[in-house]
Design a protein around this nucleic acid. Structure first.
Length: 336
RNA sequence: AGAACGUCGUACUA
């Protein structure tokens, strides 16, 4: 039975839902753990409706869901963006008293944000007896993605008023919101706080700062953050390459790309959209064509629609209409 | 007893 449970979990985690379902149906005694593992599989890999259906089946088989089960079903509601299902789950959770648990309440807040209802998310958060940092971060994430960016800064103040110290996740969202809304002064203020807390070297924060400064047009500051970063991953490189491209520094973008390769960093599909777009905006047609060729041959990255669009854009900007048309003929997918 | 669980960064996500 343990072996079957583990197997079920492995299948569910990998999205092999048919296999998971098969193992599950052969279990002689389906308990809380096996039901939840199955639901987790459907929540992560879809279809989410099945996860919700499983919860009903589970209850009708006389097995009571616990907080973990509800967290998984909430994730399914998020993926479905189904506010109606989410609200139903929330009422059930409140009725059963699971909302007292921070892991559950933060998941509820996150679910409401992902279903597009910042109001429900905020109302839930405010009604909680204990608001932990994760619940706040989930709300701020929601406002960063869907809401007015000024609200993000208002919520930061509320957090500080509640004496919750901002963590790396909070800062990532806050500076992202500043970048999206052009809030230069607030962004600089947050950067100062980040430096004071010694979080400047956090890879996630640094990449977001690079992106924020690039969006402000302050490429010098973006470069400063990038250069001081001791451990750079592919996202930090992509962010600075994109930054140069956005700020009319195509040649620097190319140089940066070449540095990246020289340092042994493996470029990914995003790297190539950034660098090809930089070549396009900087009229670096030869370089762009060269990089496009190396992309699949040397770096093993399969070009997708975005890359082709960059190339067509680049060729047509340079006036090479015929070459652009010929290029379209070589595309495996249809152009947009 | 053990096995299931929450908020993050760079494209696209219209």
């Amino acid at each position: 039975v343990f072996v079957a449970s583990c197997l079920l979990d492995i299948y569910a985690k990998n999205g092999a839902l048919l296999d998971a379902q098969k193992v599950f149906s052969k279990l002689p005694h389906k308990n809380l753990i096996s039901w939840t593992a199955l639901i987790a599989g459907y929540a992560d890999h879809g279809p989410g409706q099945v996860a919700i259906k499983c919860l009903e089946d589970m209850k009708s088989h006389g097995v009571s869901p616990n907080s973990v089960t509800y967290i998984c079903v909430l994730k399914a509601c998020s993926n479905l963006k189904s506010l109606a299902d989410g609200r139903n789950m929330h009422s059930e959770i409140v009725m059963k008293g699971f909302e007292e648990e921070a892991v559950v309440s933060s998941s509820v807040v996150d679910m409401f944000c992902k279903c597009g209802s910042l109001q429900d998310a905020y109302k839930t958060l405010k009604s909680l007896k204990v608001r932990d940092i994760v619940s706040w971060n989930a709300l701020i994430a929601g406002y960063t993605e869907h809401g007015p960016s000024q609200e993000v800064l208002v919520h930061l103040e509320q957090m500080e008023a509640e004496k919750i110290s901002l963590d790396a996740v909070t800062f990532v969202y806050a500076i992202k919101a500043c970048g999206n809304s052009g809030a230069v002064e607030q962004g600089q203020g947050l950067h100062l706080q980040i430096a004071q807390k010694g979080l400047e070297n956090d890879t996630f924060i640094a990449s977001t700062l690079v992106d924020m400064y690039s969006k402000f047009g302050l490429i010098i500051d973006a470069q400063y953050v990038f250069e001081r970063l001791s451990v750079r991953d592919v996202v930090s490189w992509n962010a600075i390459i994109k930054g140069y491209g956005m700020n009319h520094a195509g040649k620097k973008a190319v140089k940066c790309f070449e540095d990246m390769i020289r340092e042994g960093m493996k470029p990914d599909t995003v790297t190539f959209t950034c660098i090809l777009s930089a070549c396009s905006h900087g009229r670096l047609v030869c370089k762009g064509k060269e990089i496009f060729k190396l992309m699949s041959t040397v770096h093993g990255v399969v070009p997708v629609l975005d890359h082709y669009n960059c190339m067509i854009d680049m060729l047509s900007r340079a006036g090479c209409i015929n070459e652009g048309l010929r290029f379209i003929d070589t595309m495996p997918c249809s152009p947009s």
